[in-house]
Design a protein around this nucleic acid. Structure first.
Lengths: 177, 177
DNA sequence: TCTACCATGTAATCTGTTACATGATTGC
DNA sequence: GCAATCATGTAACAGATTACATGGTAGA
C-alpha cells in the first residue's frame, strides 16, 4: 500500500525519501503511519522494479548527506493508474487503543474511566482546533486533498461529540445505581 | 493488543479459541480484524505466562474436536486491570484503501472516480442499515459495549454524509471547468 | 559545546494475514 | 454424498515498528 502512496507522490513531483515521509505525514498522517523502516526499503524495491529512477544530487549550501531524488517512470505511472482505477478490496479499519480499553471499562474503576475519557476529550479538542486552523491550507492543494482534510475534521468532530455524550451517559448511569 | 482483548473476554467468562474469535468479530469486528493465526498462538503464550489456565472439555453430542476452555488467573486479572487503567499511548489510526486512492483521484479518470465513490456509497448504506438494525441488540450488553456500537453507527453515518457531499462537490467542480 | 534538524540507511522484532491441514457432525 | 459449521492448529509471508548507526550544518 505504501508503495502506491510513494508512486502517487512521485507522480506529482520528484522527491527524496525524507521529503516523502514528510508529505505522507502531513497529508494523511492521521490515518496512515509511516517510518523510515518502510520508506527506504520500498524505494529500493521500486527502483529495482524500474518503477522509479534515481539521481543523486548534492545541493550546495544544504546540510546533510546528498539527496537521492526519485522520479516515476512510464512503467511506474502505468502501474499507479491501474491501481487507482481498481475498486478497493478491503473495508475501512479503525484501530484505537483507547476504544479497545473502552469496551472493558465496565470491569475497571469507574472514576479512572472518566479520567481517561477526559484525557481523550482534551486531546481531541486540541486536535480539532489544529485541524480547523489548517483546513484553509489545503484549499489550494486540489479538491481531493481538501476533501480528505475535511473528512479528518469531521471524524474528529464526531468522535469528540461521542466522547462528551458517552461521559454524560456513563455519569447518569452511575448515579442511577 | 489482542492479548488484552482476550484477557478482557476471559475476565467476563471462560471461553475457547473459536468462541473468542466470534466475540471479537461481533463486538469490534468493524475496528479490529482477527484471525486464528493470532488467536491460537496468543492463547498459547498467555498460558505459558500463567495469565490463563486451560482445561480440555469434551462436550457430549457436540461436533468437532474437544474444546479447550481457558480461564483467566489472578495474575491475568492483575495485568489486565493494570492495562485498563493506563492511558492509551497511541492515537487513533484510520486505515482505508479507498481513502488512500481518493487522495490521488486528481491524477486519474474523473468518471472512474465517481464510479468508485458510488460503490462506496452503496456499501456504506447497506452497512448502516445493518448496524442500525443491530443497535438494539447491544442494549442489554452493558453501557460501554452499547456506546461502542453507537460510535460505529455514528462513524458510518458521518462517512456516508461525507461521501455524498464529496460526490456533489466533485461533479460541481468538474462542471465548472 | 550541545541540541536540533537534515538525510541516509539497516537489523531485529513484532504483528497481522493468508492459506493451508485435520476431523467430527448435522442437515439437505 | 456433499456442503456447512464447529473446532483445533501451523507455516509462510507481508507489513509495521523500534531502535539503532552515520554524519553534516545551523544556531543558541
Amino acid at each position: 500500500m505504501i508503495k502506491y502512496a510513494i508512486l502517487g507522490l512521485l507522480h506529482y513531483t520528484e522527491m527524496h525519501g525524507y521529503r516523502i515521509k514528510e508529505h505522507i505525514e502531513r497529508n494523511f498522517g492521521h490515518m496512515w503511519s509511516i517510518n523510515y523502516g518502510q520508506i527506504y526499503p520500498n524505494l529500493k524495491k521500486l527502483h529495482d522494479d524500474r518503477l522509479i529512477t534515481m539521481k543523486e544530487v548534492v545541493v550546495n549550501g544544504e546540510k546533510g548527506p546528498p539527496r537521492k531524488l526519485y522520479s516515476i517512470t512510464d512503467k511506474g505511472r502505468e502501474e499507479f493508474l491501474d491501481w487507482l482505477n481498481t475498486s478497493p478490496e478491503k473495508p475501512m479499519l479503525l484501530r484505537d487503543p483507547f476504544l479497545m480499553r473502552f469496551v472493558f471499562f465496565g470491569f475497571g474503576d469507574g472514576k479512572r474511566a472518566i479520567e481517561i475519557i477526559d484525557e481523550q476529550i482534551s486531546r481531541y479538542q486540541k486536535e480539532l482546533a489544529r485541524r480547523k486552523k489548517n483546513l484553509t491550507r489545503w484549499e489550494k492543494s486540489g479538491i481531493y486533498v481538501r476533501l480528505i482534510a475535511d473528512l479528518g475534521a469531521s471524524l474528529n468532530e464526531m468522535v469528540l461529540e461521542w466522547l462528551k455524550r458517552s461521559k454524560k451517559e456513563i455519569l447518569k448511569n452511575a448515579a442511577e445505581k
